[in-house]
């Protein structure tokens, strides 16, 4: 009986793993097939790879699209890391009753969905003439409550003795943050960086609202607009899918441990 259960469990897990991985295989073989083959269910590699690639680069200004994606993801990630870690550090190291109340208020705000802010944000940015700009794309995400929480949690493990020693050496508070805290906490930053990069790279709803021309679109938005076209060509869409997924998959496989750490956030 026990043996049977373990065989069933083993088989079930491999089936789950296969289902989890299949869409990735589907995407890669799809890139070598024609649109008709793809929607017709062909899952063997085909011979249409170079045609698909050519069509993709003909239809999409790939250089511009990838510049947009990388620019927005890198700038957004860097700004969020700085602003949110400053706040997380401040809330933890200089804990006071008043600031703890503010912090509790922020956690409450965490449950307000983006839908409730989306319309006013859109009206604000269009009123400021900032629709279809990088600023509109990046600015609303820079102060992330989740990341502030994450950095506060992790700051609990930052040794107070380091701060005291640095103060004796005459370092100012902001110098302690830049020259002691950041280097000591680099693995915390690395995990946060991975998650933020992925979130920014994959963002859809807000960019869909504020980016209106093709030359401002990110690769994620390009995939969506190719796929919702009147007659979507899945051959070239699969090329776009592969290119859109490659950076995050690479980061995942190179930094798997940090990746999972970042995903778990401050909750452990």
């Amino acid at each position: 009986m026990n043996r049977l259960i373990s065989v069933v469990a083993q088989a079930g897990m491999w089936l789950a793993a296969f289902i989890s991985v299949f869409p990735f295989l589907w995407m890669v073989t799809g890139a070598t097939n024609t649109a008709n083959d793809i929607t017709g269910g062909r899952f063997l590699p085909g011979t249409n790879l170079f045609v698909n690639i050519a069509k993709f680069f003909e239809l999409v200004d790939a250089g511009r699209v990838f510049f947009n994606s990388f620019f927005v993801a890198i700038t957004g990630t860097a700004l969020t890391l700085v602003v949110s870690s400053l706040a997380g550090y401040g809330f933890e190291i200089f804990a006071s009753k008043a600031r703890d109340r503010v912090f509790a208020g922020l956690l409450l705000l965490l449950s307000v969905p983006f839908a409730a802010m989306m319309i006013p944000l859109f009206v604000m940015f269009s009123g400021a003439g900032l629709i279809n700009t990088y600023i509109a794309m990046i600015a609303p995400g820079v102060a992330s409550i989740f990341m502030i929480f994450y950095f506060r949690q992790n700051t609990k493990s930052f040794p107070h003795e380091l701060r005291d020693a640095a103060k004796l050496d005459g370092l100012k508070e902001h110098q302690i943050f830049w020259f002691i805290y950041i280097p000591v906490m680099r693995s915390t930053y690395a995990a946060a960086m991975i998650i933020l990069f992925m979130t920014n790279w994959n963002a859809y709803l807000w960019p869909l609202i504020v980016l209106q021309t093709n030359e401002m679109k990110t690769i994620t938005l390009t995939v969506a607009s190719l796929a919702t076209a009147y007659t979507p060509d899945y051959g070239l869409i699969m090329i776009a899918n592969v290119l859109a997924t490659l950076p995050t998959v690479l980061v995942f496989f190179l930094l798997q441990r940090r990746f999972v750490e970042g995903m778990l956030g401050g909750v452990k």
């Binding site: 793993a17 929607t39 994620t220 796929a227 869409i237 899918n241 997924t245």
Partner: peptide
């Protein structure tokens, strides 16, 4: 790793993949 892998994709990309896999005469 395999079961975790889907989290790496963007919601848009995986949506498009599902759309093509679940076509009426699809895979």
């Amino acid at each position: 790793t395999a079961i975790f892998l889907p989290c790496v994709t963007s919601l848009v990309v995986y949506s498009v993949l599902f759309k093509s896999m679940f076509a009426e005469d699809g895979v």
